[in-house]
């Protein structure tokens, strides 16, 4: 095996390897699309965040506009403080509503931003005041069951009479 053949094959090999890495980065990992442009921080306080996790997306009208940076518990009023970073291409009115939604029945949870009508916009470091907690399925079920249980005493005497 002479020198030039080896050089050629190694060149082909390294090129293929780098091409594969680029493919993984761009096509599989979507490196260019997922990146936020000069993101600015915002925080929001929720009574209950349910299963929300750091790095979950923040969507407005279904479009990803940011990501969650960190989630902490406020030791004073026991609310969850969610720090997020929003793409600087988008700015939201001050009375924007932040809700915790679930994509699909079993999908991941994300924060949805519903813009209000205020002419002032949220600036870097601002706090979103209007928030709505996550819907906890167990609470819903127990509410439903308790309300059903409250109804039954009225219905129960009727049943044996038949």
């Amino acid at each position: 095996m002479n020198r030039t053949t080896i050089d050629l094959w190694v060149g082909v090999f390294v090129t293929l390897g780098i091409a594969a890495l680029v493919f993984l980065a761009l096509k599989v990992g979507n490196l260019n699309g997922a990146q936020l442009v000069q993101p600015y921080p915002l925080t929001a306080k929720f009574d209950n965040i349910g299963g929300l996790k750091a790095r979950a997306p923040i969507k407005s009208a279904g479009v990803v506009v940011g990501r969650i940076d960190s989630i902490k518990l406020d030791p004073e009023n026991f609310q969850a403080v969610v720090a997020m970073r929003i793409d600087s291409r988008y700015s939201f009115p001050r009375d924007t509503y932040a809700t915790i939604n679930t994509s699909g029945l079993l999908g991941e949870q994300y924060i949805g931003l519903e813009p209000g009508g205020d002419t002032d916009v949220l600036k870097s470091g601002d706090v979103i005041k209007k928030t709505q907690s996550a819907v906890v399925l167990e609470k819903l079920i127990s509410q439903f069951m308790f309300s059903k249980a409250a109804e039954t005493p009225a219905a129960a005497p009727a049943a044996p009479a038949k």
């Binding site: 890495l21 980065a25 096509k27 599989v28 990992g29 979507n30 490196l31 699309g33 997922a34 990803v64």
Partner: peptide
Amino acid sequence: FWGQMQTAIDFQRDILNGV
């Protein structure tokens, strides 16, 4: 197939860690 893959896979967390 490609779209869900691209949203779910993170360059740093998944691909760089694999490298």
